[in-house]
Design a protein around this nucleic acid. Structure first.
Lengths: 264, 264
DNA sequence: GGTTGTGAAACTCTTCACAGCG
DNA sequence: CGCTGTGAAGAGTTTCACAACC
């Protein structure tokens, strides 16, 4: 149990690409060509995948405002990246633009959704109905459709049966059965740190292959399970680092340091 | 207003390193040396900074269990990275290990805290006291000390004055005054998407230089402001991508595709 | 003229592998 | 002998810049 692998940290903006990518690729040497759609998808860099999700959101907003086409420049600006990167990212999923014109918003939306697997519904289970769990459950049908929250779990017997965001909480011991019944494909861990690994093991046992982990714990999972984590402490500490760097810079630039202490 | 820059996404594990790093570094061609502590700090890769925060957490746990020293191998395993990466990361902050022995837990904790700027308190303001804002406010003094939540804001007049997590909510119009008074250094945006940019602008106006953004919006900020974002939709969609890839793989491996459709 | 798509260069981050030191 | 610290190689990502095309 518990293969030792990197865990992509979602928030915080770093890209701990982790030893995945190429490795995960089929162990077969693969003679030469045969990109075959599936192969092409596998070749998309993790970093680009995350950005595609952002483009998708921006495109949806544009579509709502009636936009028919966008140039890479416009879309890039709206998404906060430069246009070269955007075009490169889009090139990973195919050539859907028209030179001299731009991209059709509708086409791009469709293609990105297809690549991200959003044409299929992904049932989400939230484990740990504390403050955060409550908040997540109440998103009720997570970000923009496609991710219905269809199961809630907690250890606390007092919570079992209580509806949160319209869905009654189940006991964690039923996780395997319930996840199977409701075809949960994504598990969200919002438990206290000590419970996280156990919950994770149970989710994996229940057949869940993708986990979003909010607990400040490094989860050990088998190779076939994908984990992403959201770590508030890390986020804040990275920001803290930048505050510190800034303070140092300021001290170095205008004034000078006084025995290592910045004069205010 | 609103410089166009990348936004490090925290959660989700990608590293959209953004065009920062080297760029942000002093525009001076820099003749040769002069690392001068401050310079050294600036040279730490973003990705490494995020991992240092993880190491710190693991080290603290080890210290609680009475560990005096750790080897890079042990620490790396506990942190979910390989030992070479760990040693490289630690080398960015200095040489605090003993060859043949390992690292002193206490020393490492101290040094990492220093580099991350955790010796100083960073007051946090949470804006948007909805589901998520509530959850965040109730963390009460965020992750492991050092990040006291000292201000809460919302537009809803009915919420103003109501204590959440022991702290009364202030009206968003007072953001500038309150942030100044309480020396807020980190702003957390937990508002609905349409309000995020405005709130961000106000925070910046109030002098806040670091922002953690939970709203699914690409914020435009001046160069001197650091933004990290936590984007649930992106996280889920990246996981969805992996589910899809997995499904394709399975179809390719055991069965075969039927006109591009996976046979279930 | 305008804009895409993409090789190739540049850069950043990770991994290797081993010298150096306790 | 064991483990750290690190130069160098490798992998992944971003940026450049321009040919191809509408």
């Amino acid at each position: 149990m518990a293969a030792q692998r990197g865990q992509r940290n979602g928030v915080g903006g770093d890209t701990p690409p982790a030893p995945t990518a190429a490795e995960v690729t089929t162990p077969i040497p693969r003679v030469a060509e045969v990109p075959a759609a599936r192969e092409r998808a596998r070749a998309i860099p993790e970093a680009a995948v995350a950005r595609l999700a952002v483009y998708l959101r921006v495109l949806s907003a544009m579509q709502e405002q009636g936009a028919g086409t966008v140039s890479s420049e416009e879309l890039a600006t709206a998404a906060g990246v430069n246009s070269a990167k955007l075009r490169k990212d889009l090139s990973y999923i195919g050539s859907y633009g028209t030179r001299g014109v731009g991209y059709e918003v509708a086409v791009l939306i469709e293609e990105i959704e297809r690549i991200l697997g959003l044409t299929r519904k992904h049932s989400v289970a939230v484990v740990g109905i504390g403050n955060l769990g409550h908040a997540l459950a109440n998103y009720g049908g997570f970000p923009g459709r496609g991710f219905p929250v269809s199961a809630l779990f907690d250890v606390d017997p007092d919570l079992v049966g209580v509806p949160v965001g319209g869905l009654p909480v189940d006991h964690i011991d039923d996780i395997s059965r319930v996840c199977a019944e409701r075809e949960v494909s994504i598990g969200v861990i919002a438990t206290p740190p000590p419970a996280a690994q156990t919950v994770c093991d149970r989710l994996v046992e229940a057949g869940v292959q993708c986990i979003l982990n909010f607990a400040p714990v490094v989860l050990q999972v088998p190779d076939h399970v994908e984990v992403r984590k959201v770590d508030l402490a890390v986020e804040l500490q990275v920001l803290s680092f930048h505050v510190a760097r800034r303070a140092d810079d300021a001290a170095a630039t205008n004034g000078q340091q006084v025995n290592g202490m910045v004069v205010s």
